[in-house]
Design a binder for these strands. Structure first.
Lengths: 225, 225
DNA sequence: GCTTGACAGCTTACACTGTAAGGTTCATTT
DNA sequence: AAATGAACCTTACAGTGTAAGCTGTCAAGC
């Protein structure tokens, strides 16, 4: 009987790393909402509760996943020009979303607080400081650029390109007739346009940051209302 | 016996509007994740399944909530200067987050497709067109500004200011010692700083859009890498 | 006034979730 | 050989959205 063989549990078979690997897989195949401990266990060939020996809760597992993604990030070479370092750091983060699209929505809204994540945050804020901004402006620019990046990663991986969340949808004919601006813009909302659109916004922010540093005294912007 | 009175169900007591009102309440008091049909029903003084007579699913209910929020938005007065119209439209959207903080995370990531929402989208994209941008640039700028706005609303309502999501947190002492940049920046991450930070990033984008329109031929940015 | 049918709300049930509590098996140490 | 403790499993519970079917109530037609 192979049922007896099946019962032979291999001890020490599971590990945090294995579980994390499987979790990334399950999340991408089942979607973020479709992920569950039982599905994860089934992917690992064990029972759900076995995972709890390695991670005391799903929250702890999620934290480990975020840590692994953020921990793999490296700070751009400090010898590069500042603008380029900034670009690289931002694109590195954005790439995580591309590599884990289903996880992106979770990842991007996760309020990091582990040593690994704080080290990365510290480096990124340091990058703003390296740009010549004081503590306050570094903090605010970090946030502002972060907003942009956060929104982009979210939209690129969980946004319109994946179809509407809405239950009641509108036909293409009605779209063309009643909402021509949306219709015309839709052409530039597809996956193929992501890079170009992202670059546009990113360049706007980078341009403005350089202007802010080089330019007007005390870092004032146009001041228009 | 008042139990007999209690049994007297008032017909037509529930309505879509009442249910929506209660849903907003429950979401704000219980949090987005804590919301459920059973809790909503209990807030309404009815059974969960009664709600299904008015909304065929939670998804339909959510759609109605988004529609109500978006439907209440108005386009800024067309006689105002363009930059001001843009600001107002953006701040109006942002205010929804402030008014429904717990719902913000859902609202902002919702892929709208109802007539009400499309009408609003159409107006906003039209606002970009009014700024003098062609269909392509309007689409891309709408997206880029949308990224920023999306990220801001998310962070302001579900972000760091609400405390970390992390299970394992780091002490203040360790923060000061090992992550000084984060420590120094933290001072500008609080709720009180939201407006100023948001304005900074928004002004950067608005400045750049005006430059893009008035300035260099074919709307080229600095072109630096 | 009585009947009828539709509507509004309720009851029950099912398949799913995270996880607390406690049971079992086995490699290692003594 | 016995004991220990790590690794894994079983069972159970309170919660979720919602399908299916039931019941009470009201308005309209006779």
């Amino acid at each position: 009987m192979d049922s007896s063989i099946k019962k032979k549990r291999a001890r020490g078979r599971l590990s945090r790393e294995m579980i994390e690997d499987a979790a990334f897989d399950v999340i991408e195949t089942e979607g973020l909402a479709g992920f569950s401990m039982r599905k994860l266990a089934s992917a690992l060939g064990c029972e759900a509760m076995s995972i709890y020996h390695h991670f005391p809760s799903v929250a702890h597992l999620h934290e480990a996943l975020v840590d692994r993604l953020v921990g793999a990030l490296e700070m751009p070479d400090a010898s590069l020009p500042w603008r380029q370092r900034m670009r690289i750091a931002i694109e590195d983060f954005r790439r995580i979303g591309r590599d884990h699209p289903a996880y992106a929505a979770f990842f991007v809204t996760y309020r990091m607080n582990s040593p690994t994540c704080l080290a990365w945050l510290n480096g990124i804020i340091g990058l703003f400081r390296d740009g010549g901004f004081d503590a306050e402006l570094s903090a605010r620019l970090f946030r502002a650029v972060g907003y942009y990046l956060m929104g982009a990663v979210l939209d690129e991986n969980a946004g319109y390109a994946k179809g509407p969340s809405a239950v009641n949808t509108v036909s293409d004919e009605q779209l063309a007739r009643d909402f021509p601006n949306v219709m015309a813009a839709g052409r530039f909302f597809g996956t193929a346009e992501f890079d170009k659109t992202f670059e546009l916004g990113l360049d706007m922010l980078l341009d403005e940051m350089e202007r802010l540093r080089d330019g007007a005294d005390a870092g004032q912007l146009s001041g228009k209302v």
